[in-house]
Write a protein that binds this DNA or RNA. Structure first.
Lengths: 339, 339
DNA sequence: GTGAAAGCGCTAACAT
DNA sequence: ATGTTAGCGCTTTCAC
């Protein structure tokens, strides 16, 4: 990187570096005459201020770190887009980190972000250990949990009503006459996974339907694992009449497994899930699912982050916010009525 | 952000800040005794060095800017993943920017990246104007073009053989007896769009098949636009026997349009495209397509970037590299044989 | 092996 | 309105 600095601009324009800085930031009066001279010098030298030096001095980077478990998941992509839309208007940029549901990767990402001195962190954690997160919060880095909460952390959080929507989804199956329902869970150490399982159990219990151990599978939110688990289940002779996938990716894996086993949805087996699958409109049959509005979640997250950032100096005793978004059950054509 | 600095660590450990720095970087001899004292102080204060100051001093950020037209496109996601896998091993992190095929967004992203002093930029441009890119190159920021080339820019470039694969794809249709072939182009001011159209034309001409104007559509690489254009085409009475989509997203839009018009692929109309569509394995019918290996492209890009970065000081007169990857035609079930 | 001090490029208080 | 100057937090010569 060639180094044309503010100093050279100042020399060329025959002014002090302070004047150049003032022109650059446009926050102090500068005479028209000097201003044009400076701008001309900037133009001629193709000068671009060093953001690093600027940030170091100002102690703010206008960067927001976003850490999500899977950037390829349309849900998290929506969250990112919603967030970006809101904060970019205020001049913030986003550093997006992918953790692949991997705790170590998450740790490294967070560490890097803190070192880069991002102004805030938006995190959808795959961890159940709050140690490092608390360290960050203690350091005074604004941190917002999205989609996934974690115990023992005192920060703002914005999540979906996973328990309620899981209950609703399961109830829908039950009301369609299903009893042998299989659930493919996400990681139970992650709040969304746990809450969705709890909602499922609650509905089953309420209707007095026993949950069979062999119908409780774990897919860790990943298509491949869900695929494998369902394959394994189908190899045995136990076959459920319906499957609940605790997220979209696992639903995709499950569909593939069913397809390979020549089982039709919903004729042979019903399938419902959380969130939209990719290319939802082209995949047959269309799945009945819980519609999580990731975009809205991202926007809300952006608003909260901005609120924290803009009031940071003023108001040290801001109250923690907990936002719970309610999701809808979207009924399509993947559930067979058994009654 | 609370500020525990190297100075406080030094005070607590009763050493100079230079010693702390040496411990931190582990690049100069420090006695065991002092080292432990320093590490203890770092631990107790939960000190984390300020990356900004570090980068400012060292004049390197270990950040690589990646600018792509669509982060939601699995192809570019693969590129990003391949790249990340390679460069992260050398301690680089990636800043991912999305341009939505928007020239202004691309400009802003590039500007921000330069200001943030990224060590290198990997760009898949949606622009045909090389002005700003040349400005960046002139400043000495290593820049690598991926997937899309641009005239008049003297940088490394890594692309697919779009012309050749488009020719191959079109020829495949022709050999299956198709003559009324419609092409939905991407932006022709982008190299991939242009080259794919040229390959298409070459094949048609070679077999003496006239290209009908009404069968040359423009979808700007976007699903929605392709959807709209195909809908419009079908409303008229002209109907092609086959459609070539110049990328995956447009193929998705086209499938949706065909579906709505109750046209079956391939019975009523054949469809082929570039790149895999999302959830390719679940969408029926499986499309015949050109398999672009985004992951490999990303890895190659990472290697080139590292090569540039690691030889930067030594070798000022490095030769520009041009890598052309060859793609395969993957035959599935979306083309009807008319002979 | 260790410390003092200069300086990376910039901003902002302080002078004038 | 403009210039001078002291840092922001760190690395790295240069002395010792």
């Amino acid at each position: 990187m060639k180094k044309v600095t503010i100093k050279e601009v100042a020399e060329r324009a025959n002014v002090s570096i302070a004047t150049v800085s003032r022109v650059l930031n446009n926050n102090y009066p500068v005479s028209k005459e000097l201003k044009t001279k400076v701008l001309k010098a900037i133009e001629e030298l193709d000068f671009q201020p060093n953001g690093l030096a600027r940030c170091l001095k100002k102690n703010t980077t206008h960067m927001i770190g976003v850490v999500v478990p899977d950037i390829a998941n349309p849900f998290f992509m929506d969250v990112g887009k919603g967030l970006e839309g809101v904060v970019s208007k205020k001049g913030y940029v986003i550093i997006l980190c992918n953790t692949d549901e991997n705790v170590v990767k998450e740790y490294n990402s967070l560490k890097t972000l803190v070192e880069k001195r991002v102004d805030a962190i938006v995190l959808s954690t795959c961890n159940s250990n709050n140690q490092y997160i608390n360290d960050i919060v203690k350091k005074g880095v604004p941190l917002l949990l999205v989609d996934r909460r974690i115990k023992g952390v005192n920060t703002d959080v914005i999540v979906n009503d996973n328990y309620g929507s899981s209950y609703m989804l399961t109830k829908y199956l039950i009301q369609n006459g299903h009893k042998d329902i299989c659930i493919v869970n996400g990681s139970l150490s992650v709040s969304t996974g746990y809450e969705r399982f709890c909602g499922f159990k609650a509905a089953m219990e309420e209707f007095g339907i026993p949950i069979k151990d062999e119908f409780v599978l774990n897919g860790n939110f990943k298509a491949k694992i869900a695929y494998r688990e369902i394959k394994k289940l189908l190899k045995s002779n136990k076959r459920p009449t319906a499957i609940v996938a605790a997220n979209n990716l696992m639903a995709e894996g499950i569909m593939e497994a069913l397809q390979e086993e020549n089982l039709a949805v919903p004729d042979d087996i019903s399938l419902v899930c959380f969130e939209k699958i990719r290319n939802q409109r082209l995949v047959k049959p269309k799945l009945t699912y819980i519609n999580q509005n990731g975009f809205l979640m991202g926007e809300k997250a952006g608003e909260i982050v901005l609120e924290i950032l803009e009031n940071k100096s003023k108001d040290k005793t801001r109250k923690i916010k907990e936002v719970i978004l309610v999701s809808d059950l979207i009924v399509k054509e993947s559930v067979k009525c058994l009654k």
